[in-house]
């Protein structure tokens, strides 16, 4: 009905709503990256759906000129699963935070990953509860002092990457709010994946957890403190790529000097063991890995659901009258 659409620009993805995150919030950078990536990918507005839960990040759909559904706390993957099953042609993105997806909604996240539903999930990890004004989250470091933990938190944090790998995720990646080009490229990689794609984005909450990632994201330390996972290349880092991450005989990642015989990173490895070892590595001891931890092929859930319905329809045609009658009837004469 409409004329041949011209490619949309980043601006076309902005809604008319005022963005109401705190000035300086990392969410702005992520919104910007998503809008840029969507324009780069040539997406259209009407087939794109953004579904979120509750939290600062979950206001995201209001700021996008696509279809959007701001649901309830933790349940976005469940709502999005229903949407994707109802119309697998839709391009469904889930926006969530560390509290939303790993605390109240942890169950839905792991089951979505296990099923491999075709949802693209961007997990904003700021390691704090922002919207409720500063309680510790399931990714906060142990011992964190917050409003609800004046003597320090007692629970061990989740690594979202290792949780996703453990749940059988087929695409797992990490980026950082202020690494714009990298973040955009990761969003584009998610888009290319069939099945669930989970992207963890380290996002700075400048009000309640400012500088949580500063130790490795600041420009002057970045090259020494971050290692970028690139498929088919060794895990080099350092200003002149003089160092590398390699695994010892006990599969523990170690810092070694760059050399010619380093193994290449394999995001498509049969076993998720190497990715898991990196996900568990201490931030203090090793450079922080960003990039694609894992990208493997497995049938998408919605394709299998549609396949079963199609197979059942091909095998058996039954009218409504036949369905209502069932197998045994009797007639009372008039």
């Amino acid at each position: 009905m409409t004329a041949v659409p011209t490619a949309l620009t980043k601006k076309d993805f902005k809604s008319d709503q005022d963005v109401r995150w705190c000035p300086g919030c990392g969410d702005y950078a992520i919104l910007n990256a998503v809008q840029t990536a969507f324009a780069n990918l040539g997406k259209n507005l009407h087939e794109t759906v953004i579904i979120s839960g509750i939290g600062c990040s979950s206001r995201f759909p209001y700021y996008m000129e696509t279809y959007g559904f701001h649901t309830i706390h933790g349940r976005a993957p469940a709502v999005a699963t229903g949407t994707k099953l109802a119309n697998p042609n839709l391009d469904v993105w889930v926006i969530t935070g560390d509290g939303d997806s790993l605390s109240i909604g942890g169950n839905h996240l792991i089951h979505t990953l296990r099923r491999n539903v075709g949802l693209k999930i961007i997990l904003f990890n700021n390691r704090i509860y922002g919207l409720t004004k500063g309680q510790y989250s399931p990714t906060s470091e142990k011992g964190k002092r917050t409003k609800s933990t004046p003597m320090g938190s007692l629970d061990e944090p989740f690594s979202p990457i290792s949780l996703a790998l453990g749940a059988g995720a087929t695409f797992v990646a990490r980026s950082v709010d202020i690494f714009a080009p990298h973040l955009i490229s990761m969003i584009e990689r998610m888009d290319a994946h069939r099945g669930t794609a989970l992207l963890e984005v380290y996002q700075n909450c400048n009000i309640f957890n400012d500088g949580a990632f500063r130790g490795f994201t600041e420009k002057d330390v970045r090259s020494d403190r971050v290692v970028e996972l690139q498929h088919g290349k060794p895990l080099l880092f350092g200003g002149d790529h003089s160092k590398a991450v390699a695994f010892d005989s006990g599969f523990v990642p170690q810092i070694v000097g760059a050399s010619d015989d380093l193994p290449n990173w394999d995001e498509r490895a049969v076993s998720p063991a190497a990715a898991m070892a990196l996900a568990h590595a201490s931030e203090a001891d090793l450079p922080v890995p960003i990039g694609v931890f894992r990208d493997v092929d497995r049938p998408a859930f919605e394709d299998d659901v549609v396949g079963q319905v199609a197979a059942a329809r091909a095998k058996r045609q039954e009218s409504m009258a036949e369905l209502l009658a069932g197998s045994e009837t009797w007639t009372v004469g008039g």
């Binding site: 649901t71 469940a78 229903g82 839905h108």
Partner: peptide, 25 residues
């Protein structure tokens, strides 16, 4: 299924109703 009915056994009661809402949406 031969009538086009899709059933989704969810991970819990909440996911079950949420998926139904997502489908209605």
């Amino acid at each position: 299924k031969h009538h086009g009915v899709v059933t989704f056994q969810a991970e819990d009661e909440i996911a079950a109703v949420c998926a139904a809402i997502g489908a209605s949406y």
